[in-house]
Simulated assay, not measured.
Amino acid sequence: MKKIIITCLITLFTMVGLVHLYNNWYIDYNLRKYSVYYAHNMEHKEGTHPEMAMALENMDVIYKPNKKNIRYRDDGGFIIYNTFSNNEQVIISCYPRAKELHYIYHDFTKKSYHFNEALRLEYGYDSSTGHDKIDARTVDQEVLYKDIYKNFGFLVEANVNRKPRINLQKEFNKKYYKRFN
């Protein structure tokens, strides 16, 4: 009788442990894979771009379309190259494993723009004039964001309508609401 009780308890605890591991793993994976969809359906403050931020931050699990002149790199950080010709190339990068999450956009005019975790412009550098720092207030941010979406918006478009089987919008909002508001 004791053997049966001990066997049942071991089986019960093993099953509870496996269910717990599966739920924790699946929820995290779901939130990352469908993050662009969730970000699109979340309320956010003006000037933040949660869809693009989520697409760049979770590039390892979202759908990445194969496009001409587009190259993805994910060794330590996530980098996307959009090459127009031999001398015209724009790059956007994200380093999610860094101490502070940040994004960098390099355009073909030799300027780089640095964004915070909500994809808000913080500062920039102009390497054509010897790495002079660019003040964020002097940049036409609307034009800059349109340029980023023109070059890399295909990632958002490819993932914004990919609906998850199990909708975890409330969990996503709990995790990211403060970041984008």
Rank of each mutant, 00 (worst) to 15 (best):
Q89S: 05
V90M: 11
I91E: 15
S93K: 12
S93V: 02
Y95E: 10
P96K: 05
P96G: 10
R97L: 10
A98V: 02
A98L: 06
K99C: 07
K99D: 14
E100A: 06
L101D: 08
L101P: 13
H102M: 09
H102A: 09
H102T: 10
Y103H: 08
Y103W: 07
Y103K: 06
Y105M: 11
H106I: 01
H106E: 13
D107F: 03
D107Q: 03
T109R: 10
T109W: 02
T109S: 10
T109M: 08
S112T: 10
S112K: 13
S112P: 01
Y113P: 06
F115R: 01
F115M: 03
F115G: 01
N116M: 03
E117K: 15
E117V: 05
A118L: 04
A118C: 06
L119A: 01
L119N: 01
R120T: 13
L121F: 09
L121S: 07
E122F: 05
G124M: 12
G124Q: 12
Y125N: 12
Y125W: 15
Y125C: 04
Y125D: 05
D126V: 11
S127Q: 15
T129Q: 14
H131N: 14
D132K: 15
K133G: 01
I134V: 10
D135H: 06
A136V: 04
R137T: 13
V139A: 02
E142A: 08
V143T: 12
L144G: 02
Y145P: 03
K146Q: 13
K146N: 14
D147S: 13
I148K: 03
Y149K: 07
K150I: 01
K150R: 12
G153C: 04
L155D: 07
E157T: 11
E157C: 00
E157L: 09
A158L: 05
N159R: 03
N161D: 15
N161P: 00
K163T: 06
K163H: 05
P164M: 09
